[in-house]
Amino acid sequence: MEAIVTRPAVSCCRRAVAAPGTAAPSRLLLLTTSTALPSGTRQKSTSARTRRALNIPPHPSFLDLPTTGAGKPAADGTTPARPTTDQIIFNPPSSAPSVLHTPFKFLPKSDPRRRANLASSLLAASTTLQYPSNPPTEASAAAAAAVDALPVVNPAMPTPRHHLSMADIEEMRALRAADPATHSVQALSKRFQCSKLFVLMCCQAPQEHRDKIAAEADKVKARWGPRRRQAREERGRRFEMLYRGEL
């Protein structure tokens, strides 16, 4: 990107993007960066160029050491490239909050930390206690709005409506028992306006239908090659490891 923006042809593109306009300039930028690279741009085509490109100076935080350390000009005005004294550089990565910090919502009613929830200093200091649920203030409303703006990973299941009566469930069971191929779980869930999980909770297909489905699945699995089989097995094993806390 560095190499691209220094070129005059692309800098005019950048200007076009910077100007307030329609979607066309941004498409132009996309074209420029991805496909229509100028032929004169130097790529990392050789190992020497790759090495040179990867040879980046250390992060300033490693060089910015107090007094006689590196990064500070020495007596003769030169800046040493690395620390000259025995110092421990502590530059930890950002990490997930500890599970030992109980979220505010999980504190029991009798806990003094909940009773003292007006002590906002405690809440501000903690990484996990940033969203006090009560009392509802303007700040908490703003926090709730901020949370709602975050993208949802899995769309939450709709809240159950409880609209089906016992007669409906009996009908569903009769349909499923009569012709499980036509009245599949998906078809029934559409017809009765309920979730597939609810259909599965209500009725069970006859044994021969389940055997047939299992046989079809086995036939498909028999056609898998070793790679696909191994990949699936490893995926399952990774989840087991995750649930045991090993990942």
């Binding site: 997930a96 599970v99 109980t102 979220p103 999980f106 649920s133 949370v147 990774r238 649930y243």
Partner: peptide, 28 residues
């Protein structure tokens, strides 16, 4: 609601979600 119960980083969305749930349960 607006309260964060748990948080986790992982290389896939499913793993991250499961891990965050586990962290929330652990902190409970």
């Amino acid at each position: 609601g607006a309260d964060k119960l748990g948080e986790a980083a992982a290389p896939s969305l499913e793993h991250a979600r499961a891990k965050a749930s586990m962290n929330a349960l652990k902190s409970w």
